[in-house]
Design a protein around this nucleic acid. Structure first.
Length: 764
DNA sequence: TGCACCGATGTTTTT
DNA sequence: CATCGGTGCA
């Protein structure tokens, strides 16, 4: 595409930053103002000015954003040009650089990346080894504190030299904090592992300690672009500043009103102070919203105006006025779900919309359940993003632990995870001795296990043999892995460790599902290997796969042509847009979260979060709240969110609708206690007289009801589609309720036995 | 050492 | 309400 072609697609405000080539610039981009468009076109523009793709670095917030941008740039400049661009999240880009430079920092280039779970487990075992009370030293809290230290570049030494920090922890009766931190860092290093924060911290260390490395990357990345700059933390800020220091060709894009990651160390001051950091910087503002109706834009403005700490900016739109924001009250979270499902059903029907036009956004992942139940009962296809990701499932983590151990036998967390799973008779006693021996001889756990017969250990001969056998097994994988693809190795692991066998033996529906998941993982590895063949310097190795997986998010498995409603947290929705958006759980203590209502700044962040949620909508936003909600398995009263009253009333349609939906469970009202009278009498009591139920059947309760509904339309001979295996025909169905299984003959993919409870099947 | 059961305990948000 | 960790028994 010629330059003038795509420039003509931009308004004046967008063109200016797009064609700003040299020197620092900041783009303050209001919601829906075409920020991504500016970023992509600017990169294309730079390339058409003769700047080598090789010297452009673009840092995004998610892998998905990077991929989409790369695709769009490829469409403009051609793929052969665009493939040399460096684009990705901070974490994935710098993980790559760290791998290349690992030896400088004394790390193996095959270092393991610990996810939050791994980190927390390690913190926990350290606390236990130090004989500290886990009630005072809560592993999660300690890990978070370590994380925030790292994000602020407070090393162990810096911590100990900072009387204020030490004093804070002493007052909190956590005087061992510093020592836990030290031990944690040492253990990670010994295990050849970096946690998420290390990927940034160690990059800073690398650039600070080795001027030649810094110079190399400064010269390489002459043009740097940072998306979502408002959500960068101190550590990221310093990396960007160091890399851009020489050429100062830095372009940051963001919106202070959408800064929502303070809990992760994001520092909104980075964007507020950009002009101070780069006095020569030119600031551009994109204020015209192309996404949403006037009602939505103005409603969102009226909300965000309650915040004090922000840059001046007026977002406006030339779009039609559109529908007013709908606010709806439900008696309970179940009713809320039914209302949303019903509304989606009606709107899709009346407006002839596909289900992809709808999104349900919530503050916490736990809220998805009520929505899922209601959607399932209505047979509305949906997809939940985020939450427990595929790679965090137990059986997958087990498989990955074996693979990680093959690549990096020093990885302690992985070893602990699988040394006795499947059981090999290596119990707690043996493990304790192993740990002591490792410390004594300054060896890794794996090395001790491997050499158990040659070391003076206080371990029975029988136990020694078991350890050696385990080490031998892992070593045999290592040898094999040297000459085969990641897929072949993973397949071997699944078969030879007995992991799959163990699950098959168990035979429970859960176990069967786990086997299915492992199969999916293997398929995923095969896809990865195939994909890597096309990339020049990639080999499809296990190391590459593991690096990829550690930083992958749920979005990376996205299926785009699926006709389904999207469910996700507001955080995850950042950067996305949908014609119709439902924001559910608009209640005080939930949104805003009870934990963020103690200070002005916390509350302002919650308000920005609400602003983000609202501005995802293009045509219609519906906000719902309930009068009572299940939390921790108990029914609690709820109050409407304070944010609701902050919306300018002229853009709101206050619809308080009775919730008489057909899909209410048919339960005898008398089983409710008096506390629930307000739910009970929402419907006239006469109407809720239970329908006659045959005597030999249990009354239909909410739980059995849902499993019946799942089977609707699923019958022998039906055509269905599965997100991995594609289309197929049901051959047979056995079992019922939650245990129902279907044998499905997938076109071209063979027959699979799927558990209906888990398999997300769409009826064709 | 391994397994079954029970009670306690905790929920923001994510790379 | 789920998961996790601890306890008690084989």
């Amino acid at each position: 595409m010629a330059v003038e072609d795509y420039l003509s697609q931009l308004n004046d405000a967008q063109q200016q930053p797009t064609t700003h080539v040299d020197g620092p610039l900041m783009v303050i981009a209001g919601a829906g103002s075409g920020k991504t468009r500016v970023l992509t076109y600017r990169i294309a523009y730079l390339m058409q000015q003769g700047i080598d793709a090789f010297s452009i670095l673009a840092l995004t917030f998610t892998n998905k954003a990077a991929r989409e941008m790369k695709t769009r740039i490829a469409e403009i400049v051609g793929e052969s040009e665009s493939k040399n661009l460096w684009m990705g999240t901070f974490h994935s880009v710098f993980a790559r650089i760290l791998r290349a430079e690992a030896d400088r920092l004394g790390y193996p280039s095959s270092f393991t990346i610990y996810d939050s779970q791994d980190s927390e487990r390690l913190v926990k075992s350290i606390i236990k080894e130090m004989n500290l009370d886990t009630d005072i030293y809560k592993p999660k809290q300690i890990r978070n504190r370590i994380s925030s230290f790292k994000n602020s570049l407070i090393t162990v030494r810096a911590y100990h030299n900072n009387p204020e920090l030490v004093e804070t922890d002493r007052e909190a009766r956590r005087s061992a904090m510093g020592n836990i931190y030290r031990n944690y860092v040492e253990r990670c290093f010994k295990a050849g592992a970096m946690d998420f924060d290390d990927l940034l911290l160690k990059t800073n260390e690398l650039l600070n300690r080795f001027p030649d490395v810094l110079a190399k990357y400064q010269d390489r990345f002459r043009y740097i672009l940072v998306d979502e700059y408002q959500d960068t933390n101190h550590s990221q800020y310093l990396i960007v500043r160091a890399l851009a220091d020489k050429f100062q060709n830095l372009c940051v894009v963001g919106d202070d009103a959408q800064s929502i990651y303070a809990f992760r160390g994001a520092n909104i001051e980075n964007i507020l102070n950009f002009q101070k950091d780069y006095p020569d910087a030119k600031t551009y503002r994109l204020e015209q919203n192309y996404r949403s109706t006037e009602c939505i834009v103005e409603a969102a403005n009226s909300v965000i105006n309650h915040n004090q700490n922000k840059l001046d900016k007026t977002v406006w739109t030339a779009n039609e006025k559109g529908e007013k924001i709908v606010i709806h009250r439900s008696p309970s979270d179940g009713d809320e779900g039914r209302y949303v499902a019903q509304s989606i059903f009606e709107q899709a029907m009346n407006l002839q919309l596909s289900y992809t036009s709808f999104a349900i956004l919530y503050r916490t992942n736990a809220q998805s359940r009520a929505m899922e139940d209601a959607l399932r009962k209505r047979n509305i296809p949906y997809r939940v993003y985020g939450g427990l990701s595929f790679y965090q499932r137990k059986e997958i983590k087990d498989m990955l632990a074996y693979l990680r151990l093959i690549v990096n036998p020093k990885d302690e967390e992985s070893l602990r995870r699988v040394i006795n799973y499947p059981t090999r008779g290596i119990g707690q006693t043996t493990m304790n001795k192993l740990v002591v021996a490792a410390q004594e001889h300054n060896l890794s756990l794996f090395e001790v296990a491997d050499q158990a017969n040659h070391l003076p250990l206080q371990i029975h001969a029988g136990a020694k043999t078991k350890l050696v056998n385990f080490a031998t097994l892992i070593k045999s994988f290592q040898v094999a892995n040297a000459n085969q693809t990641a897929f072949e190795t993973a397949d071997m692991v699944a078969k030879k460790t007995g992991l799959v066998q163990e699950l098959k033996k168990e035979g429970t529906p859960e176990a069967i599902n786990r086997v299915e998941n492992i199969e999916e993982l293997l398929n995923g590895i095969r896809d990865f290997v195939d994909g890597q063949r096309e990339i020049v310097d990639a080999k499809g190795s296990l190391v590459e796969f593991l690096a990829d997986v550690a930083l992958a998010t749920d979005f990376d498995n996205e299926i785009t042509d699926e006709n389904s409603v999207s469910l996700m947290t507001v955080h995850l929705a950042k950067g996305l847009e949908f014609p119709h958006v439902f924001i559910v759980g608009m209640e005080d203590d939930l949104f805003p979260s009870a934990m963020n209502m103690n200070s002005r700044s916390e509350l302002e962040e919650e308000r920005r979060l609400f602003y983000v949620a609202l501005t995802r909508a293009k045509k219609l936003a519906t906000l719902t709240y309930t009068q009572c909600r299940y939390r921790w398995g108990k029914l609690n009263d709820a109050e409407p969110s304070r944010f609701l009253s902050e919306i300018d009333h002229s853009y709101v349609d206050n619809r308080v609708v009775e919730s008489n939906y057909e899909f209410k469970p048919l339960v005898d009202p008398s089983i409710f206690g008096d506390d629930h009278s307000k739910i009970r009498f929402k419907k006239p009591p006469t109407k809720s007289t239970p329908k006659r139920v045959p005597k030999n059947l249990k009354p239909v309760s909410a739980s059995t009801h849902s499993s019946l509904i799942e089977l609707e339309g699923l019958e022998v001979g039906a055509r269905v589609s599965h997100n991995r295996f594609g289309a197929g025909t049901i051959v047979s169905i056995e079992g019922d309720g939650g245990d129902a299984k279907a044998l499905i003959d997938f076109d071209g993919n063979g027959r699979k036995n799927l558990l209906l409870r888990f398999a997300k099947l769409d009826i064709l």
